[in-house]
Design a protein around this nucleic acid. Structure first.
Lengths: 164, 164
DNA sequence: CGACAAAGTCCATTTTTCAGACTAACTATA
DNA sequence: TATAGTTAGTCTGAAAAATGGACTTTGTCG
């Protein structure tokens, strides 16, 4: 399959991956959440090729994850900011951070600490069930394909069934 | 910067991205969580080029995210399974799924439903504070660079400070 | 014996990425 | 008024990675 066909799949991970799934995008977004807004600042911090950075920012803007805000005229200059849709990626970045902290920290611990403003604790946010508040992991969740809906085609790539 | 240098950075997102950040890896892992284990099954479901799939599986094995389990001899054949480290990526995939469900569902709703086994509800897990149980989002968390530790170099790419 | 299966490898072509130089449109400095 | 600096890109040729399809290997099945 060609890469630009991936997003047509009936799969939320596929559609998300077509936006997020490359070398640099997650890092760019991470910097967005850390407050980076300008082209050169992204470029210097990430040491990303300028061409690649320009392409990525354009793509993220196209997908409404970031937007360009005019902050100067003559010449017009823009800064890049997260949209609401982009800010909704915080849980993704946060769980990636958790994973990296767990498996790739050095002796000095996680490089970046996160304080929950509401309660003051340094935390690693966890995934919980919104109904019963229990912490959720892979074994606790059972995936199933949605029922047939009107004339919509069947969902491919559903869960594999195994005899219990 | 070359891609294989990204993982040397002192940043958990960078280190994680060096494993997860490409076109196919998230999709492969998604299939792992859905129970896919065999080479051809990955290949058919994802329509990924066989060469690329072989490379990705090798890389994921190298990073101890999946392992190969012998399931037949003469000829030896292996299936691919998540390690504990791989299973710890469930929150990442789950939050990506949430985001895709929110922004890319069609009229028929999310393609795959997730039931919390413990309480029976169909859910989208949410990120919460392990200390105070509050739901966490970008505005609720304050990132800061860790303090200097022994002879470790300063953390680059920390949060940008702005006047309040 | 011929077809089929699973898990790859090989190869030629196309697409992306990379590093670094260059451009445009100003502002600040000497 | 020249000169340098700033910001946000674009252009370019070389290197690396992805792609699609055929091929290989080591068996089993009918």
């Amino acid at each position: 399959m060609k890469w630009d066909e991936v997003s047509n799949q009936q799969c939320s991970v596929a559609r998300s991956s077509s936006v997020l799934g490359d070398r640099w995008t997650l890092l760019i977004l991470s910097d967005c959440f850390l407050g980076v807004r300008n082209f050169d600042q992204f470029q210097e911090r990430l040491e990303i090729p300028r061409t690649t950075l320009a392409n990525r920012l354009q793509k993220l803007e196209l997908h409404d994850v970031i937007y360009r805000k005019l902050y100067q005229t003559n010449p017009d200059r823009f800064e890049y900011r997260l949209t609401d849709k982009g800010r909704d990626l915080y849980p993704v970045l946060s769980t990636i951070l958790n994973w990296g902290d767990k498996y790739y920290s050095d002796e000095a611990g996680p490089p970046i600490l996160r304080q929950h403003v509401s309660c003051g604790h340094d935390i690693q946010p966890v995934l919980q069930c919104p109904e019963c508040e229990e912490v959720v992991d892979a074994h606790n969740v059972h995936a199933r394909t949605r029922p047939q809906y009107g004339s919509y085609p069947d969902v491919k790539r559903g869960p594999i069934l195994r005899r219990g």
